[in-house]
Simulated scan of single mutants.
Amino acid sequence: MLSLTLFTLILAMVSFLAFVYLIEPGPGGRVQYLTTKAALLAHKYDLVDHLDPAQTRQLYLSTCTRQCHGKDVIELTPRTALEWEQIVTRMGKQEKASIGRTEAKTIIEYLQRNHLSNVPTILPEATMRFLKKRLWRLDFGESDLYFDIIYLPRGYRHLMPYLAFKSKPVDSDEALFIVYVNTHTGILPPWDLAKYTAIRIDGGEEAKAANWQVLYEDGQLHHRQGVLTFPDIDQGAGARAGSLEMLIRPPAMRERIFHWRLPIPDAGLRSTKTKQGGDKQ
């Protein structure tokens, strides 16, 4: 009986060693390959919450670049944090992708960390050129905190669905700004930006923000998108002004100042055809 048990154990060990030898080794060798496969399987069924960087990249490669398309389609076209979340969520609903909830969260975080664009990618190039030149302002970050501000006068409110998460054109007298706040390594503070932001016309008296509405926030608290509103600047002195400034004074940080030249010219962007096709009014 003992000899049979010992023989069975030896046979099982030989079979396992033969399996390890015959499998195609990964870059880190056969043991690393098996370890990664085991971690990915456990992660798929929520038995492991976090993967190490190498395992996370392997999950991305095996899920996004082998079943669907090559990696150049992804890596040569950075997207915003929101766009990556929407893309992965949409792909997860397709049977061929077979992405679980935990896997999707990990892949989204990987793409947001490694292939991020602060600029929405859905608009035509001509529209984006006008936005960047006339309406879009940004800074280069301090303490790993980056602001992107888009001023949207009334004539450009139809662009809101392409620039702000789940938003519709707003026909109001308020001055409206779409704000993106990003950090790469830290966590965004839960600020009410209306308390720390003001605008002024031609260097005159400051006007405090009326409201800050958060539209989107990623699960890592690295990316936030919202709308700041102010009293109307399109009428009265604002209509004759030559410059507009926004001043953001984050707690314990230097003041950030963003400039626009007024008036904003009419670029004829009343109808927008997205890169995916279709006209939006």
Rank of each mutant, 00 (worst) to 15 (best):
Y45R: 14
V48H: 15
V48I: 14
H50Y: 11
L51G: 00
L51H: 02
A54P: 05
A54I: 03
Q55F: 05
L61E: 14
T63C: 07
T65M: 08
R66Q: 01
Q67S: 14
H69Y: 01
G70E: 13
K71S: 12
V73A: 11
I74H: 12
L76F: 12
L76I: 02
T77G: 07
P78H: 15
R79E: 01
T80Q: 13
L82G: 00
E83C: 09
W84N: 00
Q86F: 08
Q86T: 07
M91W: 03
M91L: 12
Q94T: 13
E95Y: 03
E95I: 09
T102P: 04
T102V: 03
T102H: 04
T102I: 05
T102Q: 01
A104I: 05
K105E: 00
T106H: 10
T106P: 08
I107H: 05
Y110H: 13
Q112C: 15
N114D: 05
H115Q: 10
L116S: 14
S117G: 14
P120G: 09
P120C: 13
P120E: 09
I122A: 08
I122W: 07
L123T: 04
E125L: 04
E125I: 04
A126V: 04
A126R: 14
M128L: 06
F130D: 05
F130G: 09
F130N: 02
L131D: 00
L131T: 01
K132W: 11
K133C: 05
L138A: 09
L138E: 12
E142Q: 09
